[in-house]
Design a protein around this nucleic acid. Structure first.
Lengths: 149, 149
DNA sequence: ATATACTCTATATATTTAGTAGGCTATATA
DNA sequence: TATATAGCCTACTAAATATATAGAGTATAT
């Protein structure tokens, strides 16, 4: 399950992606528009900045902007940085592998064999979907709704 | 991330699947063989019994058995019952749908559009993999290791 | 100078996870 | 029918994680 942290982070970053190239947006503005506690969002955006997903400008007229264009930032990178590894068990994680202590032979662990498929599938989707892709998906969904009437 | 609860449950249930048809296995036996705290496993197996995944026999010679043959129990059913919905956000869950309060229009929410794909993919894998399938995967993995030498 | 806006450290609260303790109930079998 | 076996049920607790909040500090545009 996505935590609020990741969800808030994604909400804010999608606003930044939508207005990419139009200058910085303040934390206060993002927080208000999405109904996110300001102080909480502050710490989330800071984390994303440290990962070089966002860039910030201080002082008047300042705020946050994407550090890279929307097609160069994937959903996977964001979720991983805010919620940790995508893998359901650490022993199938590629970015944060950790052995299960008790596991006698990892290669023949049934749970691992299944969860590896799950991890690969999640990673394929999230790493294969950029912010630009998401914006396009939203547009498509909007058009579909229009065309129904 | 899978909780220990789900992991322990899966470990125990895979032992039961392997010896399906050979009579009941006690909690104490399962706990010892997998290094699981006995009392914790007790509550896990009870939950699986209430879901009609396991069946139990009391008294001497008693213990737990699968309530159905291994090909009729899916990984998805087990994980859902122990850890809750597979969906990363409640608004894309089929078994436990819940609306996001703040969300203005669910149909055009970017996070939802992406997470729906993730949910469907996880559900396809876990609901499409039975305990029998897992046992077969383990066997295949064993043979692969053999054939390397 | 001054207001704006991000940065950093510390703290608080709620919820979930991961257990533990102990008595109760049903059953096989001697 | 006594007894040991083995699951059932209720309650409690400790630790970790999630979800924030407070307040002082720092950089910057005007």
């Amino acid at each position: 399950m996505l935590t609020k942290k990741a969800k808030y982070g994604l909400q804010a970053i999608l606003l930044l992606a939508k207005d990419y190239g139009k200058g910085p947006i303040t934390i206060a503005d993002l927080a208000q528009r999405e109904g996110i506690p300001k102080k909480f969002l502050e710490s989330i955006l800071l984390a994303l900045k440290n990962r070089n997903i966002l860039y910030s400008l201080k002082g008047k007229g300042g705020g946050y902007v994407l550090a890279r264009p929307p097609n160069e930032i994937s959903m996977g990178e964001i979720v991983r940085h805010l919620d940790g590894p995508l893998a359901p068990v650490p022993c199938v994680s590629k970015t944060a592998y950790r052995r299960c202590e008790e596991c006698e032979d990892e290669r023949t662990c049934g749970i691992r064999l299944v969860m590896k498929r799950v991890r690969d599938s999640i990673a394929d989707i999230l790493d294969g979907t950029s912010l630009e892709d998401v914006l396009n998906m939203i547009d498509e969904a909007r058009h579909e709704i229009q065309n129904r009437f």
